[in-house]
Nucleic acid binder design. Structure first.
Lengths: 337, 337
DNA sequence: TTGAAAGCGCTAACAT
DNA sequence: ATGTTAGCGCTTTCAA
């Protein structure tokens, strides 16, 4: 392995001068610089980043802990974060928790041992119990996509998921729907359901618990099954005219089930989802949904961390709640009759 | 910051002993070990991984360069790789190229400077010109998901994409289809198209170039547009009865377009895709496709690298071609009449 | 079994 | 503008 000392000897200077050239410091004379660069080229020298990290105390990488990247929501967030980091010369150490709290803890333990300059944590379920630890690592930490009970001891950049549910509910209310069925991944999305119910409650309509169908994951298949159940449970006299799905993926399955029951979307049943996944716009009919500003979230969170590093102090506790937005498409309409 | 020396003093031993305890070496007496562990707990000591890396020359992280993780194909591969690495105590440094060759080069440059113990590279387009460099980094390198012209100078674990196309084509031939239309992201998937054509050529049917519709990306929308074009260009006398799509996403759009044209899948037109994405099985009708063994690929590639690290020598050049498999579902059937 | 010494390759003062 | 001197915190010889 060719080291800085090798280069220095070859160029007839000291390590320090080589270092100055490598780091692009302006204090090196043009001719020394040329000599050093020649030596670097001849020897094929490349600086050892680990040694630099030990000397500077900075690794130029940030850790990102996410539940999974199989879910497009997270993979998009990861991609945005990675791009932003790269623009600032930082690298991304990615760790997934996959619903495994123990695994999450291990990741936290290693990443915090100075192998990253800052830590971003997305999602909540697997990690919420470890939140108290996060503050003690002495490095900038931020949370994002924190749907349930964001802690007030750390900076968190997340989305107003309650509002997302509320907006979906209000949209249905404004169309004139009186009876709501919710199909949601629970408990993960209970805040969204709460928001939808609040919209109805505002108008004096109490949504009862038996209108909420819990499913274990956010897939079209689970949505389909639950919707079949929900529709069959329906009393014909007072039919459900609106279904709120806690994600677009679920909503896709719900629309399927509605059709399967010989009903039409939106003429017989309106369906509204949350997230605005790519397929939503191209579904049949195009799905009305509430778009979650995930890119914005990724940007804000990354910015927070980068600033924390630059100012050499952990960002102070704060809660940034980004607003979702309704996208009215063709899957929702006023109730018939 | 509390260092190993602090712990050593507190416990009344030397750094070396502390190190032995931390690394779990068996040579430490029970009582010294207890003293040291007490000191570690009291001081809240945690080892500095960067310093360890400098001393050992190993970082316990491997770099993975992928085109994007927005594409589920890659995100699934990344997730499998990450899981496998974690099981072996390794971390994942993730870098995306996003179709930017320059960016790819930068990533290569930094990652190779001893910040990773090995390098895995997926995809091809953005990086193919840099392949010659890969061998010179002195660290284990492997390629995966290399669809076009895998180099013979490096170990590569990829899928037999030509066979995937061939299997799709042969399936259609076996059903009795005589005329094929292909809708493919080109040039990325030209090997797949070639495979499909080979299946027809085997039976003496030459597929002409004007039956291939090139689209710029693998989305249902592009597939939809192209299929509309393809179907309208059709001479009624000699109608196309089979469409080969180079990915499932495209195939979904194709089925859409077929229906839009008042035709039925598979009665009037058979549609076959490649990849077996989750939606394929739940499409209407369920999509016949060729499943790509991406998990296997991720496993083999990771294993190759881990072995390379363990044996302290770069894995030797090799080509592992994993076989795809046809999944016959309801979107394909014998041609009418 | 434990201790002492010598690096790993680099950066950051300070001195020249 | 360049050289000198100390480390960064750990691991790894080699002695004791």
């Amino acid at each position: 392995m060719v080291t800085m000392l090798d280069v220095a000897r070859r160029a007839g200077v000291t390590k320090q001068t080589v270092s100055n050239v490598v780091r692009g410091r302006a204090i090196v004379s043009a001719e020394t610089k040329a000599k050093v660069e020649a030596a670097i080229a001849e020897l094929g020298y490349t600086p050892n980043l680990v040694a630099r990290s030990l000397a500077t105390g900075t690794t130029m990488t940030i850790g990102f802990i996410v539940p999974t990247i199989a879910n497009p929501f997270y993979s998009e967030v990861v991609e945005v974060v990675e791009t932003l980091l790269e623009e600032h010369g930082y690298h991304l150490l990615l760790a997934t928790t996959r619903g495994d709290g123990e695994r999450a803890r291990r990741h936290l333990a290693t990443l915090s041992n100075r192998s990253v300059d800052a830590l971003l944590v997305a999602g909540d379920f697997d990690l919420s119990e470890h939140v108290p630890l996060l503050g003690e690592y002495g490095l900038p930490v931020a949370l994002c996509a924190w749907e349930i009970d964001p802690p007030d001891t750390l900076p968190v950049v997340t989305i107003d998921y309650e509002k997302a549910g509320y907006l979906a509910g209000r949209h249905l209310r404004e169309l004139g729907h009186q009876r709501l069925v919710s199909i949601a991944e629970l408990p993960a999305h209970r805040v969204r359901v709460g928001g939808a119910h609040r919209a109805f409650a505002e108008d004096g309509i109490v949504v009862t618990d038996d209108s909420v169908f819990a499913i274990p994951d956010s897939t079209p298949e689970s949505g389909y099954e639950a919707a079949l159940l929900a529709l069959s449970a329906d009393r014909t006299a007072d039919r459900t005219t609106a279904v709120f799905a806690s994600t677009d993926a679920i909503a896709l399955g719900v629309m399927e089930a509605v059709r399967h029951n010989g009903l039409r979307v939106p003429e017989d049943v309106s369906v509204v989802g949350i997230d605005d996944i790519p397929q939503a716009a191209h579904a049949h009919p195009p799905l009305t949904t509430v778009a979650l500003p995930k890119r914005r979230m990724a940007q804000e969170a990354t910015g927070l961390l980068l600033r924390g590093i630059a100012e050499n102090q952990p960002p102070s506790p704060s809660l940034t709640l980004l607003s979702p937005e309704v996208l009215v498409r063709a899957s929702s309409a006023p109730p018939a009759g």
